[in-house]
């Protein structure tokens, strides 16, 4: 899922300081699962905005709403339910949701309440870790299912580097050296020889270095 966390309140209050009516719009997708921007978090944010504005001696009216997802055109259309009732939307979706609202509603000011952080999973309750970088050219079949692009600080294709010490990364003693883990895992799977295969210089154009990416599925398009 996409993992995110709320922006500092000072930043959010600065965004809405000139608004008198705001729609705080939750997303029931990934950000609900990672407890950053679901209905519960949006309700807390609405309360904090009201309190923050009150502290500055300003009144603000907040409408709370939520969409099934903010990354699909048909769900964005549901925003029209609140037309004319707000000066701006504060979206608690990931950056995709904010972009979709901006793309599809030219007259609407939309602010991000979250910092969209990474593609990850819940390692345990309350803890999320990055697992995938969405690089567009997956090498997991060569690395025992562990991603060196997302989980190696240098995104090395031929690791580990000299900064690997006792299974930890030189950038932080609490950070796993994923290449050590790849080595160990391939060994335990009886595929240790894979470590001797030199990966070629990589073409990063699929990772966004070639500009914004797009997928067109002609078997699914209807126009």
């Amino acid at each position: 899922m996409i993992v995110a966390e709320r922006k500092p309140m000072a930043e959010i209050i600065e965004m809405v300081k000139d608004c008198s009516k705001v729609l705080v719009l939750a997303c029931r997708g990934c950000v609900t699962v990672c407890s950053a921007g679901g209905e519960r978090e949006a309700a807390a944010l609405a309360s904090l905005i009201r309190l923050g504005m009150k502290k500055q001696g300003k009144a603000i009216e907040i409408i709370e709403g939520s969409l099934v997802r903010q990354c699909d055109k048909e769900y964005i259309n549901a925003i029209d339910e609140w037309n004319g009732q707000y000066d701006a939307i504060v979206s608690t979706a990931c950056g995709v949701g904010v972009n979709f609202i901006a793309n599809l509603r030219q007259e609407t000011m939309v602010y991000p309440a979250l910092n969209t952080t990474f593609f990850g999973g819940s390692a345990e309750q309350g803890i999320w870790t990055e697992q995938c970088a969405g690089c567009g050219d997956c090498v997991l079949h060569l690395t025992g299912g562990l991603c060196p692009v997302a989980r190696c600080a240098k995104s090395l294709m031929n690791g580990p580097c000299g900064g690997s010490v006792c299974g930890k990364c030189e950038i932080n003693k609490d950070t796993e050296c994923i290449w050590q883990s790849i080595h160990d895992r391939l060994g335990s799977l009886g595929r240790g020889s894979q470590m001797e295969v030199i990966a070629p210089i990589r073409d990063w154009s699929t990772a966004g270095h070639g500009g914004p990416r797009k997928i067109v599925r002609n078997d699914l398009t209807i126009s």
Partner: peptide, 11 residues
């Protein structure tokens, strides 16, 4: 008691 419950008390 949720976070919102506590914030509502301040509100």
């Amino acid at each position: 008691v949720q976070v919102t419950t506590l914030l509502q008390a301040f509100e």
